[in-house]
Amino acid sequence: MAFDAIRLSDKDNVGVAIHDIAAGGAVALAELKLTARDAVPLGHKIALRHIKTGEKILKFGVPVGSATMEIPAGSHVHMHNVKSDYLTNREDHWE
């Protein structure tokens, strides 16, 4: 049982690296395997499938932001391809 990332909920489209993952390396989760397109440090997110522009990033089954570009499976998911749906739109948020 040596995994590289965990999925916190079945609904999630991202996994969380449980140690530093090298670009091009094989990534094993309990329920699937994929190849890392980028380096993914410990605690960072990796796309478990292709995520479309504008699609919600789901972690623990909860939206944690939106994709700002097409994110292929195995990509590092972070500031460069995700935006907050909260801080960018606070005035409308509470309406």
Binding site: H44, I57, V62, V64, H78, S84
Partner: peptide, 11 residues
Amino acid sequence: GGLSTIEEKSI
């Protein structure tokens, strides 16, 4: 640490 948004931190 890998958190991209405030809502992700809150999660």
